[in-house]
Design a binder for these strands. Structure first.
Lengths: 226, 226
DNA sequence: CTAATCAACATTGTATACAATCAACAAAAC
DNA sequence: GTTTTGTTGATTGTATACAATGTTGATTAG
């Protein structure tokens, strides 16, 4: 079993479960249940939950505890817009140090993506898609920016859980390969453009502005069922 | 006295003291002393310190406690580079909703800056300079970006404490007014350029790459003192 | 039968007690 | 005299106890 994990390990386990949609947005995260599951006191769990709350992965309401964050439509737009602004900007920085080894590493990752797609392993697919983006960002020589991008990628996974269509994740799976090709061929501007349009495409695949989520018209919904 | 402040208030008080260099980089932040000062248990203090640690304002070393973060030269460069990238990008977003009221508000803030400069109130000056930048960013319609900029501004205050020359803060004090003028006159591109060069100027005023900080040559330093 | 009130339970918030770790100083060995 | 080792004191790490709050379900009045 999970005997005696340290705080960091607990953090990663919970984060992974959230990113992979095993714990969906809105899910309660009761301290004592988690405390029991990890074999640690509530104190340690609280610490982890507070960290996740600051990273906007979970929300903590006073006296109501922690829930997996359910991003609002506005939050979703802001996060995607930020990524559309930032990730293309980092491409030139990344290409300054782009090497054969890098290319090989990312191509291997894309093989895993294909594999996950073939296995219909949705969890792995979501995780790998995010990983592709933030490991790329990590190759820039600016870890401050890279950390921020990583956070945005994790939060994007929540967005997909709430607003994503079936296609949101899978349809761009072959696409990532195109970027690596462009980078191998030193096509700076094209790579930058590609990244921008890739993210715009993801944003437009989200079901934003379709409904207000809460305001469901039950009358209409169950109109002709009898 | 400070009877019964909530966590948020404690957080703000400590953050303010750090930003204003009352608590300089490297300063120890012992839990029990703070606990005594604020009249709360160590639990509350720990929560605040952990938050500040995630925001990179303080560092927590296991079994050694919390210290005000002393940014490395690399961290300083990364943060300034990030600001040089991002803040100009937000200018067009800000100008979309720029109003007379905004202009008035910021002009008032600049009066305070001038006042602080006249009084040689270094603490207020640092705080107001940072505030100018992050309140401007907050006018964009992207709070995700705005929050990130705010964090970078706070961290910049630490950078100035470590690498800043006397001029770092004060010399750009009149400058901010130029930006407001440009924005009032709808000079988008010039405002963007101005912001970029303003930040580059701040970066270049830092004493980066001068010494390694630690490796002091005492032989050379005290060569001809006798 | 519906609505409101109250009681019991479950969950989080806070403080404190105890264990573990580290730092500094003193004493002893080389 | 220098280095090593050991002991003491201070500080952080963790768990738990108790208080405060929220939620649920039952009981009673309308």
């Amino acid at each position: 079993m999970n005997n005696m994990l340290n705080d960091e390990a607990i953090y990663k386990k919970i984060l992974k479960s959230i990113v992979e949609h095993q714990l969906p947005p809105g899910a309660r995260l009761p301290e004592d249940k988690l405390s029991e599951a990890f074999g640690r006191s509530r104190t340690s769990i609280r610490k982890v939950l507070q960290r996740l709350a600051l990273e906007r992965i979970v929300t903590i309401e006073p006296n109501k505890g922690a829930h997996v964050n359910r991003p609002s439509e506005q939050e979703a737009q802001e996060i995607l817009d930020s990524r559309i602004m930032l990730e293309p900007l980092l491409i030139p920085e990344i290409m300054k140090y782009w090497s054969k080894a890098n290319s090989k590493y990312f191509r291997a990752m894309l093989k895993e993506e294909k594999q996950a797609e073939a296995n219909e392993d949705q969890a792995a697919l979501i995780q790998l898609t995010a990983q592709f983006h933030y490991e790329l960002a990590a190759l820039s020589d600016n870890s401050v920016m890279a950390d921020f991008i990583q956070q945005l990628c994790y939060r994007s996974s929540l967005i997909i859980a709430v607003f994503g269509s079936r296609h949101s994740v899978s349809c761009d799976c072959g696409d990532h390969l195109e970027l690596i090709d462009l980078m191998d061929n030193k096509q700076d501007e094209k790579a930058q453009d590609w990244m921008k349009h890739h993210l715009i495409h993801i944003k437009s695949s989200l079901k934003l502005g379709v409904s207000d989520g809460q305001k469901i018209n039950f009358q209409q919904l169950f109109a002709n069922t009898e």
